[in-house]
Amino acid sequence: MASLRSMELEINGAQYALTIEPRVTLLDALRENLGLTGTKKGCDQGQCGACTVHVDGERVLACLTLAVQAEGRSIRTIEGLASKDDTLDAVQQAFIEEDAFQCGYCTPGQIMSAVACIREGHAGSDAEIREFMAGNLCRCGAYNGIVAAVRKAAQRIQGAAA
């Protein structure tokens, strides 16, 4: 049997120490070991996007990442998106304004994906947003709102940068 392994993960700028088996996924480590339950599990098979987090600034699926693979990387989850003074990120704000969710379960994944989508420069048109957000399923069917929110947030971010 493989032994437990001690590791440190950097999540939302803080260091977390944990001792777990190597087979524990980043998703289960977040939800079951670290109490960071904002990241959701919709399939555990890479097929829905609910578990999207950022590793070294890029959107990835926490359900197909072993926690140990993320050692030494910088992880960001939905809990770390709002600023220190609790001001919502532009994408979070736009999601509320555009009612880009219903049950809210896919939402953290959608938002983490959207933040990256904008940063990658893939929010140039509605068609592009739809394609580059296609890896995040929403059974409530909030897709129109999601596209509107990403478009709006992208404009605000560009406006702020200009």
């Binding site: 996007g49 990835v60 699926l61 990658e120």
Partner: peptide
């Protein structure tokens, strides 16, 4: 192929 997240991994 796949999705943006999967392609990043």
């Amino acid at each position: 192929a796949a999705s943006a997240q999967l392609r990043n991994m």
